[in-house]
Amino acid sequence: MRLRDRTALITGAASGIGRAIAVSLARRGCHLALADVNEAGLAETASLVRSGSLLVTEHRLDVSDRDAIAKFPAEIAAAHPRVDLLVNNAGVAVGGTFEQVSEADFDWLLSINFFGVVRMTRSFLPVLKRSDDARIVNLSSVFGLVAPPGQAAYVASKFAVRGFSESLRHELEGTTVGVTVVHPGGVATSIAKNARVPGGHDADEVERRRAAFDKHLRLPAALAGETIVLGVEARKPRVLVGKDAIALSVVERVAPVSYWKLLGRAMRD
């Protein structure tokens, strides 16, 4: 896929993988519509990618807001004549087992991680179909391949993104719109630090768990963003980001039921 002079809409663009994708796309001459709830972070991303030859716009958007998403194509159309690439990257995390996570927190996570993806796709698919070469890029996770304990809400959302993306890809075969689902491994972002934690937990224990999780987040976000954009250019249906994601995908295929007996020990080490 040739990205120069295309236009990409990226959610969750204020930091982390979303920002890294924006930087990689800008380097290829792709115009950008950057969306996030974090306006200060959006401004920082825009300052990194803006140049005289690129049209870069910033848009405050809460992807859990159904009405805001329904109105968003009109806002983007007022700023950009076309959209060729939709990157559904916005995501959040909630720590805790299924019994520990409240129904409200579970619903909040799904409203962003899954229904945000579905609603953005529904709103922008007609726009993308007007392009001669378009793509939807949905961010799942390595936890859309394997399902560790203590991540029931997050895992549910990321497996849902994976299934939705694969079915949509089959439905859109023969059209000008392709679909890529991305499974990042341990990327060095602030998602663990910003995760919601169920009430009533000891603060020291919460920090210990966050530190234990953080040690697996090693891959620089810039490398993750470049890997994803390379996958888009190659029209890959699935992009595994990081050696850990590649290894986990193999383990899951070899032992689809019993993989956690092996992985659980490795993650504790």
Rank of each mutant, 00 (worst) to 15 (best):
R2S: 14
R4A: 14
D5T: 07
D5F: 12
L9F: 12
I10T: 13
I10M: 04
G12L: 14
A13T: 09
A13E: 03
A13K: 05
A14R: 10
A14Y: 11
S15R: 15
S15F: 11
I17K: 03
G18N: 11
V23F: 06
L25C: 07
A26L: 07
H31M: 07
H31E: 07
A35I: 12
A40L: 13
E44Y: 14
L48N: 11
V49E: 09
R50K: 15
G52C: 11
G52R: 09
L54D: 07
L55M: 13
T57A: 10
E58H: 09
R60K: 14
V63R: 01
V63M: 05
S64L: 11
S64N: 10
R66H: 15
R66E: 15
A68D: 09
A70V: 12
A74K: 14
H80T: 06
H80F: 12
L86Y: 02
V87W: 01
V87D: 00
A93H: 04
G96I: 09
T97F: 08
F98S: 05
Q100H: 11
E103M: 12
A104Y: 09
F106A: 05
F106K: 04
F106D: 04
L109V: 10
I112K: 08
F114D: 00
V117E: 00
V118M: 06
V118P: 00
T121K: 02
T121C: 04
R122F: 09
S123Q: 12
S123D: 08
F124Q: 01
L128H: 01
K129S: 10
S131D: 07
S131H: 06
S131A: 10
D132N: 09
R135L: 04
N138H: 00
N138D: 01
L145Q: 01
V146E: 02
P148C: 13
F159G: 00
A160T: 06
V161Q: 00
R162P: 00
S167H: 02
R169N: 10
R169F: 02
H170M: 12
H170W: 08
L172M: 11
L172I: 06
T176H: 07
V177Q: 06
V177W: 03
G178R: 06
V179Q: 00
V182H: 02
P184W: 15
P184Q: 15
G186T: 01
V187P: 00
V187K: 03
A188Q: 08
I191K: 04
I191Y: 03
K193H: 11
A195H: 10
V197H: 06
V197P: 09
E205C: 09
E205K: 15
R210D: 08
A211T: 10
D214C: 07
D214K: 14
R218P: 00
L219S: 02
P220M: 04
A222G: 03
A224Y: 04
G225A: 13
V232M: 15
R235K: 11
K236Q: 14
R238F: 00
L240F: 14
V241Y: 01
G242K: 02
D244M: 09
D244S: 13
I246N: 07
L248K: 04
S249W: 08
V254H: 04
P256Q: 02
G264Y: 09
M267K: 13
R268Y: 08
D269S: 14
